[in-house]
Design a protein around this nucleic acid. Structure first.
Lengths: 187, 187
DNA sequence: AACTCATAGGAACGAGCGTACACATGGCCA
DNA sequence: TGGCCATGTGTACGCTCGTTCCTATGAGTT
């Protein structure tokens, strides 16, 4: 302990990509301790940049949070759509959906937490709600590659419930139970 | 404007039931503007009591929020269990579930908002997560009056998803669509 | 009537917050 | 080379917050 006080960094002027790294660090902070603790100061500390750097690159904290969640949603939605596009038929699409849900979303503590934190933030902030809605609609469009619109919508709601359930329950459903539920519903 | 400065209330000492009214007022504030705005000061203002009164009756803000959400969950869970108990068979139970969901929960802006705010708060607070888990398990037990445990669990997750969906979507499912989804799943 | 103590009331403290702003720096172009 | 200006930095302001603390009051008891 009591290490040298930041010796390496010094006059790191004109740091290209800092804005990008701030977005990444923001996601890290949200995933680690929740959107409520994602303050300018906490993010600045985690990214090892001065406080003023945040308000220089982002006009407000909400703008930064929106940028972070947008990046995350883009990432997850793209992965999901790739899975759906690669599925040759409806049965394969359902298996790919199970894989996405149990592997990508619920398998990664980080992705699960980020999803719930986004729900949380969106519940009260219109700008973040737009990000959530974008995610929902992209997810539904991916499902509609193989499912009819009505089913796609219902599956989407069920998926949201399973995510919430996994995050809040002490005794969450395992992969086999989730698979059974989805197949029962849409199989 | 510039009305008399609180003329009626004056030396309202020994106010019985104030603790209860504080819990109710807390729910009102949460429903109106979100759990993030439910501060000591906001609640005190809404209840027309001095700030110190809150910390006198509740050791901390979290304790007050937990008391408020507990009261709400008790209320909703009791209403739901009454519906389930009154249903003579499985088909009637499913109709009662639809009624509860579209009428009680989603039909009341207040109840819908409170449900989502509880999810939100529970995501980061262990004490409030216990309240959520209690709600989930009571809801599941009510469903098990007519559904097997596996189905009850899956229906519970779907209901959570439908609640979240209704709260966050610009284009939420209507009662008929929700009924169709539930019946398709468990009917 | 005197006493007591649970309840009520209001002010104050220290901390953390978003944001604004004045100043420093150095890459880039004339 | 010299100067401009986008970028980087550190400090400070004004605000709200949860909580603490001291004082006042009056209902119930003796």
């Amino acid at each position: 302990m009591s290490a040298d006080p930041a010796p390496a960094r010094r006059t790191r002027r004109h740091d290209p990509g800092r804005r990008d790294r701030l977005v990444d660090t923001t996601l890290d902070v949200i995933a680690a301790r929740g959107v409520a603790t994602a303050t300018h100061r906490a993010i600045a500390r985690a990214a090892d940049v001065p406080l003023g750097s945040l308000t220089y690159h982002f006009g407000s904290l909400t703008e930064l949070l929106a940028a972070a969640f947008t990046r995350h949603v883009d990432d997850v939605a793209a992965r999901f759509d790739a899975r759906m596009a690669a599925a040759p038929d409806r049965a394969a699409a359902l298996e790919a959906l199970v894989e996405h849900l149990t592997g990508d979303l619920l398998g990664s503590e980080r992705d699960l937490v980020l999803a719930v934190e986004l729900y949380v933030a969106a519940a009260r902030d219109a700008e973040l709600r737009a990000v959530t809605q974008d995610w929902m609609s992209r997810s539904r469009r991916s499902l509609e590659r193989h499912l009819d619109p009505v089913t796609a919508r219902e599956v989407d709601a069920l998926v949201e419930g399973l995510v919430l359930h996994s995050a809040l329950s002490t005794d969450p459903m395992d992969a086999a139970q989730i698979r059974a539920a989805l197949l029962r519903f849409a199989g």
